[in-house]
Simulated scan of single mutants.
Amino acid sequence: MSEQADMDYENEEACGANEPHVDCSDAFYTSQVFECREDVFRSDTNKGSRGRTTFVLIACERSDEYRCRKKEFIRRDTGTRKCGCPFKLRCKPVVGGEGWMVKLICGVHNHELVKSLVGHLYARRLTKAEKTLIADMKKFMVKPRNILLTLKEHNVNSCTTIKQIYNARSALCSSIRGSDLEMQHLMKLLEDSWSVVRNHLLKELAKFSEDYIKLFGGMERFEELRMSLLVDGLTKVTTDKWIDITNMGYVIASRYNVIVVSLSKQQSMTFFPLRSQPLANSSLHRIICISHVYDNHFVEVYLKERCPLPSVALLWSSNCHPQAKSWPNPYISRMQHTRAS
Rank of each mutant, 00 (worst) to 15 (best):
Q266C: 07
A280S: 10
V196H: 02
R52H: 13
N329Q: 13
P144Y: 02
I165M: 10
H337T: 09
R177M: 07
S262A: 09
C15E: 15
N281C: 10
H185G: 07
L263I: 08
L186E: 14
K304V: 10
C36A: 02
F272I: 03
R90W: 00
R50Y: 13
V301W: 08
N146C: 06
E72R: 05
P310F: 00
L205N: 03
E191I: 06
R62I: 04
L225G: 02
F73G: 06
S63G: 12
H120N: 07
A59R: 13
A171P: 08
H21Q: 10
H185A: 15
V251R: 00
N110K: 15
K304P: 00
C106W: 03
G218P: 02
M101T: 13
H200C: 15
G79L: 10
E72S: 05
L190V: 13
Y122W: 08
N257S: 08
Y66I: 05
K70V: 01
R50F: 14
S262P: 06
M248I: 06
R221S: 03
A313W: 01
L186V: 05
D44G: 03
I105E: 04
L215S: 02
N146S: 05
E3C: 02
S318C: 03
S317Y: 14
G107D: 02
S209T: 05
F272S: 03
F271T: 05
P308Q: 02
L89I: 13
D192S: 11
L186W: 08
R221E: 09
M187C: 14
M101Y: 08
W316M: 06
F271M: 04
L190S: 14
I288N: 12
V56T: 12
G84K: 13
T54Q: 14
G84F: 07
T270S: 04
L263M: 11
K163M: 03
V196C: 12
R226F: 03
H297Y: 09
D39A: 15
I288Q: 15
F87P: 09
K143W: 01
V142C: 07
H120G: 04
L279V: 09
H154W: 10
T160I: 04
Y294W: 09
M269A: 05
N319D: 05
G96T: 05
